[in-house]
Design a protein around this nucleic acid. Sequence first.
DNA 1: CCTAAATGTTTTAAGTTTGAAATAAATCTG
DNA 2: CAGATTTATTTCAAACTTAAAACATTTAGG
Lengths: 160, 160
Amino acid sequence: MSGTPQIRLAEQGSKQRLRLWLRLLAVTRKIEAELRERMRTEFDSTLPRFDVMAALSRHDQGLRMSALSGVLRVSNGNVTGIVDRLAEDGLVMRVPVAGDRRATLVRLTAKGAEVFARQAAEHEAWIDAMLAELSPEEARNYAARLRTLANRLDDKGATE
Amino acid sequence: MSGTPQIRLAEQGSKQRLRLWLRLLAVTRKIEAELRERMRTEFDSTLPRFDVMAALSRHDQGLRMSALSGVLRVSNGNVTGIVDRLAEDGLVMRVPVAGDRRATLVRLTAKGAEVFARQAAEHEAWIDAMLAELSPEEARNYAARLRTLANRLDDKGATE
DNA sequence: CCTAAATGTTTTAAGTTTGAAATAAATCTG
DNA sequence: CAGATTTATTTCAAACTTAAAACATTTAGG
């Protein structure tokens, strides 16, 4: 009815992986929705803004627009808009790059660094609470597994 | 320097969970980006459209706008726009609900069901290839773990 | 040097997304 | 049964997102 045993097994593998993907997506969306809601109510901000500030907080010297876009895996034009709005609020600043007038370096302002520090502490606590069910060891194991999976995905993308 | 041993351990757990979350997000975004790209180039469509059709394909009798919104975990207004565009393309139809003139039932058209069947087969194959590194058993185990995690998150949300 | 290709960023058009306000209809309550 | 509340959906404004086009600048070849 449903083919040879070999094909039945392959189909099952495919179904299991699809199911895993759907669960992964569901959990990720659930957590993101919760984080977005809290960012909005507690800090009157958004996740994309937080993501940009988080990336910048790891680079005191600042990041180019293209580097920011690469780190966050979002399009160039997207970053332009988010940085525009953060700059309006005085949280980041655009700095010219000496020797390349095409490029712009984006950096957290003093105010931006201060605001981000507060938000980051809460953000970490929210995640800690949401994932409290996972022991530190379990979290570490899953993170490691995801890391190898991400590497494999990157490899594939690179060779295509 | 960094507090009592108890606090140091708690901090570590928090860091591990944060790291896990960041990896989860990175992998999910990577896969989504790949799926979006393929939906665009192979089918000239988008993930949100596919998601809506996938939900409808599991309900022959159709779904109310609010049910669709609930299943997909996106806002009501969002679903309105996506269904509008799918309807323009003749892939879904709005059907009045007998006995409740506020509500609308959304269903796949024959064309929509046919288009979705083709896309779903490809979609499953793409995911199967991307997650090929995971054995069916491993996929099943992770899916199960994510399921309990999702349940826990839902419980939290319900009691708040 | 001068042009062609490459690089860095912004702009644009279309679609997605949210939360809140508006609308419409059904249900509850006195 | 009339008014108030709740429920189902759409509309709206603002932000996010992408891919592609436009722009500015730099680098590479001749």
